[in-house]
């Protein structure tokens, strides 16, 4: 640039002209303009950064919320299918100890430990296992026997919360179930659950044992026991009530 007073060459850094000593007003104006531009730039830069931070923070939060909602929704859907998941896990555990379970079940059957078999199935969640389907009727018979003994116990304990009528009804129900198990009507049931001869023998044993107890405690004769199987549940209940009343007198 040139000095506006003497016309000599000057640079932007010269505040006064080295030749004539006058002020370099052009350089001063330039520097003032530069300072203003830098200040404006700083303000705009600050605004852009602040807005961008705000937007980033908002985006991150919204993303986190969306992910959390998606995870919660996925877990709720999985809870809906939890029964199947649990059943599959239980079945895997049963299969891992299948031989041990079979050996224990057969031991209970051989020793006629009717209640032991029932509670073994309960404790190990075996009742609905596909791998132990062959033993399902043995469990069912033991379950029936457990119920019969439980309600017989309510009859004996006079201060129980179960009435005699209800107890008799339940015992009659179990005897009806035993009769059905001894002589299944459905071919499907016969093919599916009665393949194992040991299970069939076990059902016969437990039924005979239950009939002996019914005969003893309710005063039924051999003929009445034979006839008992063919009676309706209501008739069975009436016979039991009469037998129990006569026995206690």
């Amino acid at each position: 640039m040139k000095c506006e007073h003497c016309g000599n060459n000057l640079s932007l850094e010269d505040k006064v002209c080295p030749y004539c000593g006058k002020e370099n007003t052009l350089a001063q104006k330039h520097n003032k303009d530069m300072a203003k531009f830098e200040k404006d730039y700083a303000v705009v830069k600050n605004e852009v950064l602040t807005n961008s931070r705000r937007l980033n923070g908002l985006t991150v939060r919204i993303t986190v919320i969306a992910v959390l909602v998606a995870l919660i929704a996925a877990l709720i859907l999985c809870i809906g299918g939890s029964f199947d998941i649990r059943s599959a896990r239980e079945e895997r555990m049963i299969r891992a100890h299948l031989n041990e379970h079979k050996a224990n079940i057969e031991s209970f059957m051989d020793s006629k430990n009717y209640l032991g078999l029932y509670y073994y199935f309960q404790a190990n969640r075996l009742a609905y296992s596909e791998s132990l389907e062959d033993y399902y009727m043995a469990y069912s018979a033991s379950s029936c026997y457990n119920q019969m003994l439980e309600y017989f116990g309510y009859l004996l304990h006079e201060d129980s919360y179960v009435s005699d009528e209800e107890a008799m009804e339940r015992i009659a129900g179990t005897m009806e179930r035993f009769a059905e198990m001894k002589d299944p009507k459905s071919d499907f049931e016969k093919k599916k659950y009665y393949k194992n001869a040991d299970v069939v023998a076990y059902i016969n044993n437990i039924t005979e044992h239950s009939e002996t107890l019914i005969k003893g405690y309710f005063g039924l004769s051999d003929e009445e026991i034979k006839e008992f199987e063919t009676l309706s549940k209501a008739r069975k209940q009436v016979m039991l009530e009469e037998g129990w009343k006569n026995g206690k007198q």
Binding site: I72, L75, C78, I79, S82, R86, R89, E90, M93, N124
Partner: peptide, 16 residues
């Protein structure tokens, strides 16, 4: 929800 899911899918063998 995760705790409920774990509880509902846990095998009940021996713990019923």
């Amino acid at each position: 929800t995760a705790a409920i899911f774990v509880g509902k899918t846990k095998p009940r063998v021996g713990t019923l």
